[in-house]
C-alpha cells in the first residue's frame, strides 16, 4: 500500500514537471514576443493584432501551470498519506512541498495582480529544484525520528516554506525591477538595449512596490518561523536558541530582509540598492535550503541523505 502510493506520487510529480516544462517554454515565448513587438518598429495597427495572441500564449501557460500545480499537489498528498505524516520531513519532501507552495503563491498573487510575466522564473526555478530533488535527494519513506515527532513540525516547517514562496516571488520581481531600471535609463538616454521585452511590464517603481508587498508578507512569516522554531527547539533540545548552523542562517536571512525593509525607507537606498538586498536575501534562503542542509554539520540534520 505504502509502496504503491509513493510510486504514484513519483509518477504524478514527473507528470507535473513535464507540464511545468511546457508552461516554462510558453511563458518564455510570451516574454520574447514582448521584445519583438518593441524592437521592430511596428505600426499601431500591427500591435493591435499581436496583443491578443500574446495574451493567449500566457493564458495557456497559466492554465498549464494550474494543471501542473494540481498534479504536484496530488503527488505531495500521496507522499504524505503513504508516510502517514506531513510530506516535509526530508530534503526530497521539502523540495516537493516547497516548490508546490512557490507555485501556489504565484497562482494566488495572480488572482490579485497580473504577474504572468513571472511565469518563466517560477516554472523555471521550480523545475530546477524538483529536478535536483528527484534525481539527487530522493529517499524512500522512513518513519520520523523522535526529535521530529511534534506538531511543531507541521507549523514551523510549513510556515518557513510559505515564507520561501513569497521571498521567491520577491526575488523575481526585484530582478525584473533592476532590469527594468536599466532599460528605463537606457531609454531615457536614447540608447539601445536588449531588454525590449520588458516594455510591457510594469515600470520599475511599480515592480518595486509589488516586490516590497510580497517580501513583507514573507518577512512576517519568517519572523514567525524563527519564533516557532525557538519554541520547538526549547522542547526538543532543551534550549530555545543555540546558534546551530540552521539557526544562524535563519537569523542571517531575517537580518538581511530586515535590512531590505529599512533600505526601502532610507534615502539613497530605495530602488536598485534595496532590490539587490532582496536578491541577496533570497540567495541566502536558497543557500540555507541546499548547502546548509547537506554540507553543514548541525542539529537540523534532517535531509535524509
Amino acid at each position: 500500500m505504502t509502496d504503491t502510493l509513493s510510486q504514484y506520487s513519483v509518477l504524478a510529480l514527473y507528470s507535473a514537471m513535464a507540464i511545468y516544462a511546457i508552461a516554462f517554454v510558453l511563458f518564455t515565448l510570451d516574454l520574447a514576443k514582448g521584445a519583438s513587438d518593441d524592437s521592430s518598429a511596428v505600426g499601431e495597427a500591427k500591435k493591435v493584432v499581436v496583443v491578443p495572441e500574446r495574451r493567449k500564449l500566457a493564458r495557456v501557460a497559466m492554465a498549464l501551470t494550474v494543471i501542473g500545480f494540481l498534479l504536484q499537489l496530488a503527488a505531495t498528498l500521496m507522499r504524505g498519506f503513504a508516510a502517514s505524516r506531513v510530506p516535509w520531513a526530508n530534503m526530497y519532501e521539502f523540495a516537493m512541498t516547497g516548490t508546490l507552495i512557490i507555485v501556489g503563491v504565484f497562482l494566488l498573487v495572480n488572482l490579485k495582480w497580473d504577474m504572468k510575466f513571472l511565469g518563466s522564473f517560477v516554472t523555471g526555478l521550480v523545475l530546477l529544484l524538483l529536478g535536483l530533488a528527484a534525481t539527487r535527494y530522493y529517499v524512500e519513506i522512513v518513519p520520523l525520528p523522535p526529535a521530529l515527532q511534534s506538531y511543531w513540525l507541521v507549523i514551523h516547517v510549513f510556515v518557513a516554506t510559505l515564507a520561501t514562496g513569497f521571498f521567491a516571488l520577491g526575488f523575481a520581481l526585484s530582478l525584473m525591477q533592476l532590469l527594468q531600471t536599466k532599460r528605463e535609463n537606457a531609454a531615457a538616454a536614447k540608447e539601445k538595449t536588449r531588454l525590449g521585452f520588458l516594455t510591457r511590464l510594469p515600470d520599475s517603481v511599480q515592480l518595486e512596490n509589488y516586490a516590497y508587498r510580497l517580501i513583507i508578507i514573507g518577512f512576517v512569516l519568517w519572523t514567525f518561523t524563527l519564533i516557532a522554531g525557538a519554541i520547538w527547539a526549547e522542547k526538543a533540545w532543551g534550549r530555545y536558541w543555540g546558534w546551530d548552523t540552521k539557526e544562524v542562517w535563519t537569523f542571517i536571512i531575517w537580518t538581511i530582509y530586515a535590512g531590505y525593509i529599512h533600505a526601502r525607507s532610507t534615502r539613497g537606498w530605495r530602488g536598485s540598492r534595496s532590490a539587490w538586498l532582496a536578491m541577496v536575501g533570497f540567495a541566502a534562503v536558497m543557500f540555507n535550503f541546499t548547502v546548509v542542509n547537506i554540507f553543514f554539520k548541525g542539529l537540523h540534520a534532517y535531509s535524509g541523505l
Binding site: G242, W243, T245, I252, T255, G259, T266, L277, F296
Partner: peptide, 26 residues
C-alpha cells in the same frame, strides 16, 4: 537610517563565520 542599515547588514555578515567554523557553545 544609513548607519542602522549598515549595522544590520554587518550583523548578518558577522554571523556567517559561526556557521563555517565549529563553535564552543554548540
Amino acid at each position: 537610517m544609513r548607519t542602522a542599515l549598515l549595522l544590520l547588514l554587518l550583523l548578518a555578515i558577522a554571523a556567517v563565520p559561526g556557521s563555517l567554523v565549529p563553535q564552543r557553545s554548540s
